[in-house]
Design a protein around this nucleic acid. Structure first.
Lengths: 341, 341
DNA sequence: GGTACTTTTTACATCGTTGGAACAACGTTG
DNA sequence: CAACGTTGTTCCAACGATGTAAAAAGTACC
């Protein structure tokens, strides 16, 4: 069925290796033979057997990307960008979903052998430092998206503390005094960093920290945001602003605010994190931290590329990609006169 | 670095083939040897080289999934489900993004060789029948999500005509008389089918079809929905309902309705298609057609599995997966009293 | 002990590709 | 024209696994 080098060689009347040389752009091939081989290649429609080639070369040509779930917009988008970035460098990407559970994250890490992929981009959610074996099957790793895991591994992320601080200072700058947070989570990682940024900002703005204003969530999903918001709105003294640790939580919060007849941002301002496109169409549109996801994907692929080809420095890199604050209606109100009667 | 069968064999003091036999569950291995091999396997942490195994077996172990973009919620979710379904059957999934352009779809199809993947799940957007080569590199294909491409290939989808008809009849049943549609598109495929369902429903409801009420779009994105909605609202006689060919379009439409001070659904009802989670949190929440995506992913993977293992019937299958109408606030109004002042 | 049979293990070839070395052809040069 | 370097081609082994077939070991029976 499939055409092999041998078939092409027979057709062109040369040896297999000569065909291989042509395919791989080796310089010293007689023009006459090159022409014959190229004709035979075209005639047969030859395509190299990637598996065999990689077996011989000792590479697999695959990168793994470990994320919680593709159905979360942030990860869907990120995965798309990673695939594109990897493709440009000749890699294919295998996506592993962990549902954000520690067990599955650990199992996935363990399953990544040097045979399956050349390297892995890992976006952990619940993993702890201890879960990282000395080296995961001997393949290079790059961590994405947080830094609370204290391991000597390459890492790419935005400055989560600074970003959270920026968002909260924005709320404080608008005169909000009871600023709540949604997204605390007992697991290490993102949550901790954003919480730290939140606290720093409160302190800088001269506001005091209150435990009751920090609503914990199980997952970073819309429903969790909704439950957390209900909890906050039930407080004796209601918050006048909420910083949500991602946009999905914020969307849940927006919905609950509306259900309870609160005006956003007049009664309560809401800010998110991630800049999902969803947030620029919500009512009101969502003020959010916008990480440069393209830069993130690029940096991650570039980093693992360098590791794999052995060019990388010995010391683990720590790359920070840029972010910006996207100010929209959920904190500063409507530009035009949107009638809401 | 990597442990091979040979290493294990040396350690256990048996031949390579015996280790292979143990690994593959061959029955006739002396208990004593089996034990020794298993110990050696555990001690070395052996993991088979998938590439080598597949080279020998003539399989690659990979499926391709071709979609427009992962950043579109529907495809992110679908990809996640396909990956899960494929994993259960021992396949890994390679995702190819085409941005929905015919050129890239064609190029991607052409690049799928039997060496790279065992089969492909293809969700075309712009492809036409003529673009399908007799057989794509000799590997089985399964088409996802539409049926306008008239090719003799396995196919899984919901009944798009019926689904669209259901949604529009729902709107008509609420007494709406000027029902518009957003999502017409010169390319074949989904658009045509949903448009057909729309027209059928209008006829059944005794409403006449008007060209001006059908707004074309470039892409099925939120911004396109917004532009189309602006166009519809600028008509001399405004529609009192809009059926959007997917939820993203509907979200764009919702936003524009609000910007122009229209109440949904009182002034204009809006329905979507896909049941993205986003739509159950929007304000108002979105009435939509909910395809059973899990069933779709399962059916597709099952179908290609059967094709690849040669069990499938000669004739191309045509599998219809179920859908339902999810009625929410954007057509029937708010349950509770959401204050919108 | 020999024969026939079954169970267990091994050697070898093979999948499609490429690296390396050997080899062949060629033109240059002394 | 012999020796040489350059260019071009081929042969062989190897990547890691498994199918095939043959060899080896074990068992049963006469």
């Amino acid at each position: 069925m499939a055409v092999t080098l041998k078939d092409v060689a027979t057709l062109a009347g040369v040896s297999v290796k000569t065909v291989s040389n042509v395919v791989n752009g080796y310089a010293f091939v007689k023009p006459e033979n090159r022409r014959r081989v190229e004709e035979a290649l075209a005639a047969t429609g030859y395509r190299p057997n990637v598996g065999a080639r990689n077996l011989r070369r000792g590479r697999t040509g695959f990168l793994a990307l470990m994320v919680p779930e593709l159905s979360i917009p942030y990860f869907g988008e990120l995965a798309g960008l990673v695939i594109t970035a990897a493709q440009r460098r000749g890699w294919s990407v295998l996506i592993e979903q962990t549902q954000g559970t520690r067990d599955r994250e650990r199992a996935t890490l363990a399953s990544l052998g040097p045979h399956l992929v050349d390297g892995a981009l890992v976006h952990p959610e619940a993993l702890e430092s201890a879960d990282f074996p000395d080296s995961v099957g001997g393949i290079p790793l790059v961590l994405l998206g947080e830094h609370a895991v204290e391991v000597d591994i390459d890492h790419v992320a935005i400055d989560n503390v600074l970003a959270a601080r920026t968002a909260v200072l924005h709320l404080a700058g608008l005169g909000r005094r009871r600023i709540a947070a949604i997204g605390a989570n007992s697991r290490r990682g993102t949550s901790e960093l954003r919480l730290a940024g939140y606290r720093t900002a409160l302190a800088e703005a001269g506001l005091s920290y209150e435990d009751s204003l920090v609503a914990p969530v199980e997952k970073y999903h819309r429903t969790s945001g909704a439950s957390a918001m209900k909890q906050l709105l039930a407080l004796p003294e209601r918050p006048d602003a909420v910083f949500c640790f991602n946009d999905l939580l914020a969307v849940g919060a927006l919905r609950v605010a509306a259900e309870q007849g609160l005006r956003v941002p007049e009664d309560i301002a809401i800010a998110g994190f991630d800049n999902n496109e969803e947030g620029s169409f919500s009512l009101p549109s969502l003020t959010t931290i916008s990480p440069d996801k393209t830069a993130l994907a690029e940096a991650a692929v570039e980093l693992i590329h360098r590791r794999i080809s052995g060019e990388a420095a010995a010391a683990p890199q720590d790359v920070q990609t840029p972010f910006s604050l996207e100010v929209r209606e959920s904190t500063t109100g409507y530009d035009r006169d949107i009638v809401r009667t």
